[in-house]
C-alpha cells in the first residue's frame, strides 16, 4: 500500500470531517436544546458562503487590501448567518413552540424553511456555480509538507480546533453556557430557575449559525465554487455525523464528523467516488437502525 496515498486520504478525511463538524455542531446544539432537527441548518451554511462571496467581490472592486477583504467578508458572512439563524427561529419554530405543536410539525416547518431559503438564493442570485476566490494563500513555511496537507487544509483544521475550544469554553464556563445546559436537561425547571428560555434558544441558533458560516466560507475557499444547493448535501451529511456521534452531544458531533469524514475519504479513495453519497446515506440508515443513540449519546428510557 502506498503510504503517501494513505496519508493523503487521511488528511483529506480530516479536512472533510472538520467541515462536517462545524455544521454538525449547530445541528447538535439545536437538537440538544429544542429537540428539533433543524433541517434548514445547511441553508445557513450556504447563505454564509454566498454572503462571503458577495461582500468579498464588492470589496475587491473597491480595491481594498487582501487582508481587509478576508477579515471583513468573513465577519459579515458570520453576522449574516447569525441573523438568518435568529430570524428563522423566530418565524418558523418559535410560534410552533408556543402552541405546543407536535415534533413532526416543527420538522415539516423546518423542511419548508429549507426549501424557501434555497429558492430565495436561487431567485435572487443564480442557479449556476459561482467561482469563489481563494482567500487562503499557500504559506511558504508549510511548503515541505504541502504534498500531504495543503495550506488551506491546514487552515481549516486549525480553525476547527479553535472553534471547538471556544465553544467548549462557552458551554462549560460561561453563564449562558450553564443556562444552555440547564435548558437542554429540563426546560420547565430551567424556566422556574429564572432562565430566559427564548433567549437561550436564540443564542443557540446564533452560535450554531456562526459555526456553520465559518464552515461555509472555509469549504468555499477550499473547493473554489458555490451554488444554492450546496447546503442540502452538506447539511444532511453533517446531520449523519451528529447522529453518529450521538445527537445532542457536542464532543459526539465532533467525533462523528471525523469518523464520517475519514470513512468517506477512504471509501472514495479505495472503492468508488460515484457511490460516495450513497455510502453516507447508508451509514446514516445503519446507525439509526442499530444504534440510534450514537457513539457518545445516552439511550433514552421512555417514561410512562
Amino acid at each position: 500500500m502506498d503510504f503517501d496515498f494513505l496519508t493523503y486520504l487521511f488528511f483529506g478525511g480530516l479536512t472533510r470531517g472538520s467541515i462536517y463538524a462545524l455544521i454538525a455542531l449547530g445541528y447538535t446544539m439545536v437538537y440538544g436544546i429544542v429537540e428539533l432537527i433543524n433541517f434548514a441548518h445547511g441553508e445557513i451554511y450556504m447563505i454564509g458562503a454566498f454572503t462571503g462571496l458577495i461582500i468579498s467581490s464588492v470589496l475587491t472592486m473597491l480595491g481594498l487590501p487582501i487582508l481587509a477583504i478576508v477579515v471583513l467578508s468573513a465577519l459579515t458572512a458570520i453576522i449574516y448567518s447569525c441573523a438568518y439563524g435568529y430570524t428563522m427561529e423566530k418565524i418558523a419554530y418559535k410560534p410552533l413552540r408556543d402552541s405546543n405543536a407536535p415534533r413532526l410539525s416543527a420538522l415539516i416547518s423546518a423542511i419548508g424553511m429549507s426549501l424557501f431559503l434555497q429558492n430565495y438564493v436561487l431567485l435572487a442570485q443564480t442557479s449556476d456555480f459561482l467561482p469563489f476566490p481563494n482567500f487562503i494563500p499557500d504559506f511558504e513555511f508549510w511548503e515541505p509538507y504541502a504534498h500531504i496537507l495543503t495550506s488551506p487544509e491546514l487552515v481549516i483544521l486549525i480553525t476547527t480546533v479553535i472553534v471547538m475550544i471556544c465553544l467548549t469554553i462557552l458551554i462549560k464556563f460561561t453563564k449562558i453556557g450553564k443556562a444552555m445546559r440547564a435548558t437542554s436537561q429540563d426546560k420547565v425547571m430551567a424556566v422556574l430557575m429564572g432562565v430566559n428560555i427564548n433567549r437561550v434558544i436564540s443564542i443557540t441558533f446564533i452560535v450554531g449559525s456562526a459555526t456553520a458560516a465559518i464552515g461555509g466560507i472555509l469549504i468555499a475557499c477550499h473547493i473554489g465554487q458555490i451554488n444554492f444547493y450546496m447546503g442540502f448535501t452538506a447539511g444532511i451529511k453533517a446531520f449523519v455525523a451528529a447522529v453518529l456521534g450521538g445527537i445532542g452531544s457536542i464532543p459526539g458531533a465532533v467525533l462523528g464528523s471525523f469518523v464520517l469524514g475519514l470513512t468517506e475519504s477512504f471509501f472514495a479513495g479505495y472503492f468508488s467516488s460515484d457511490y460516495e453519497d450513497v455510502f453516507a446515506f447508508l451509514f446514516l440508515v445503519l446507525i439509526l437502525i442499530f444504534r440510534p443513540s450514537g457513539i457518545l449519546g445516552r439511550a433514552e428510557t421512555k417514561k410512562v
Partner: peptide, 28 residues
C-alpha cells in the same frame, strides 16, 4: 421493516436517506 421502530423525526430522516439512495443508484 428495519426503520419502523425509529421515532418520528428519525424515521423522516432515514426515509429521506433511502429515497436518496435509490435515486443515486438509479443515477450511477
Amino acid at each position: 421493516y428495519p426503520v419502523l421502530r425509529l421515532r418520528g423525526d428519525y424515521l423522516a430522516i432515514v426515509t429521506l436517506g433511502f429515497g436518496e439512495i435509490i435515486r443515486l443508484v438509479l443515477e450511477n
